[in-house]
Each structure stands twice: as structure tokens, then as C-alpha cells.
Design a binder for these strands. Sequence first.
DNA 1: CCTATACATTTGTATATACAACAATTGTAA
DNA 2: TTACAATTGTTGTATATACAAATGTATAGG
Lengths: 153, 153
Amino acid sequence: MTIEDQIQTAPLPLSRKLSINLLYTANWANDILAEALKPHDLSLQQFNVLRILRGQKGKPANLSTINDRMVTKMSNTTRLVDKLIKKEFVVREVCPSNRRKVEILITAKGLESLQKMDEAVATAEDKITAQLNSNELEHLNNLLNTLRTETNN
Amino acid sequence: MTIEDQIQTAPLPLSRKLSINLLYTANWANDILAEALKPHDLSLQQFNVLRILRGQKGKPANLSTINDRMVTKMSNTTRLVDKLIKKEFVVREVCPSNRRKVEILITAKGLESLQKMDEAVATAEDKITAQLNSNELEHLNNLLNTLRTETNN
DNA sequence: CCTATACATTTGTATATACAACAATTGTAA
DNA sequence: TTACAATTGTTGTATATACAAATGTATAGG
């Protein structure tokens, strides 16, 4: 279904059509991922933080590191981490070598829970991409990367 | 820049890479649009509601109509409209023929303000799509539409 | 040593949104 | 006509997020 049909609007200039389609489609994908995580009582953003911490392989991460690696920007990783602490999925300590920083570590419980969610999320990701073959997915990936290319002006 | 470089992660399966890239890129586009609207003190969602109401060409819209046409889903168009009323960009009345419904109309002030924002938003949309030519944009559009195609299973 | 500045994070305030509970109105059917 | 269900919106609670101000810590220059 075209995006014009989807949101019932008159024909749009291409740049507008693409902008709307991009946001609309991402929202659609977001819903599928959120749905997959719902039984685990974790938001997509909380899941992302956990996944980043697992990627650290035991090395603690400080807030700005997590922030840099988030898919969506956060002025507020502090409060996300607060919620993960309440669930006992991560621990937070003051960095001994530089007490301005904090060190955040995923716990055994966090790793365990993450493992249980992996399958659900992978299924959701497959669902999102199911309608395209590998070549098309690569192409789509490249087009998205190009879109974000910075101009030097 | 590839999405793996962007968020500093190990190589990912294609379905995950695309899912992340889609959310990341939409977020990037969202920021550009929000930035363009910032001088006008209007959020992207408020702008979208106004644009939908203008599309009604004088015909009032009720809440569920607006909801259907929103790019991002809303459990909460009520409160968005509240904010637009406070800015005197729209008015809300009870529908006389069916008093469960409400009728929402854009005001002259709303139309006027919208017109001023049009240029800023069009510029933002051009910026979002600047790195691709028409053919590529059409292709990207089609790939996004295909992605959202429902399966009948 | 003292102070200005930079750094890393936290907190307050506002917006957007999901979900569930609630309320009012209308339609239907015994 | 009364009971019940469906429709349409509103409201309460929780999460995510942007932005700005505040907090606490480190560092560099005088």
C-alpha cells in the first residue's frame, strides 16, 4: 500500500512522501519490536541499553558511552538505567579513577533475561524484513546509509 | 557511514542491521524536522494534526479521523488537540448530529501559522532527501512500502 | 593554593505516547 | 422501556525523550 493511501492524503512531492514514509515505516517496525518485548516487561530502549552492556563483555560502560551507541538519542540515559537497576538487570557504581563518571555493568540476571528476549526480538526483526530478499535488504540498507550522508557545506 | 560504524557494534545479521538502520535513520529525519519547527514552537505531531486539518478544506474532522491519518499512532490525540486549542490554532465542538463525536476545525490563525511553517518544513524534507536522486527516492519508497506489506498467514 | 573552566551526570519541566479504566451517547433487542 | 452492547472520547499512570539548569568533580592558569 502506498503511503498516500495509508494516511489518506493527496499526492505528495517526492521529498515529502519519502520523509513521511520513512517515519511511518519506522514506527511500524518499532511497534513490532515493542510487541515482541511486551511479555518481558521491557521497553525497546531498556532492551537496547542491556544489549549495549552485553556487548561490553564484562567491561563497564559509562553513561556517555551508552548514549553514543543508542539507536535513538537520549538526553536521559540516567533514568533508563534507574529502571534497569530497579529490575536488578544492571548495577551502577562511581568510577574509581574519575569520580565524575559512573560505571554501569550488566548483571547475571540481566544477561539471563536478555538471552530469553533474544529469540523474541530476532523473530520480530525477521518479521520486519520478511518481505524483502537479501539483495533488496542490502540495497535498502545502502539507500538509508546514503540518505544520512553528511554534506560538506 | 554504515550503521555498524555509527553505533559501534559488531557485524550484525541483515535483518537486525536493517531494523536498527530503519529506526536510526527515521530518528535522524525526525530530528531534522523537529529542528525546522522549533522556531515556530510547534512539535512535529502538532504540526501533523494541523496539516491534516488543513487537508479537510473547511470540513471538520473528528478525533478518530485525525488518528487514522497520523503518521505515528496516537492513543492520545485528545491532548494534542488540547495544546492546539490553547494556541488558538484549532477549535473543538461537540458534533450536533452525534454527541459522542467532536468536531475539530483549524482556525484562520492556525492556517496562517501553518503557511509560515510550510517553507521551513519543505526545506527540512529536501535536506532529508538531498543525497538521493528521484529514481533512488522512488526505489527507496517502494522498498519501504514492500517492507510493510502484510502477509496473509 | 585559588579560581575559572570543562567534564560527566543528574534533575526539573514539558511533550509525546501506550495502555487501561472510565464516561457519555447511541443503537439494538427483549 | 429497560437492559445491554457498541461507539467515541477523556483521563490516569507509566515510559521515553528534549532541553536547560543544577550538581559534583577534575584540571589548568595565575
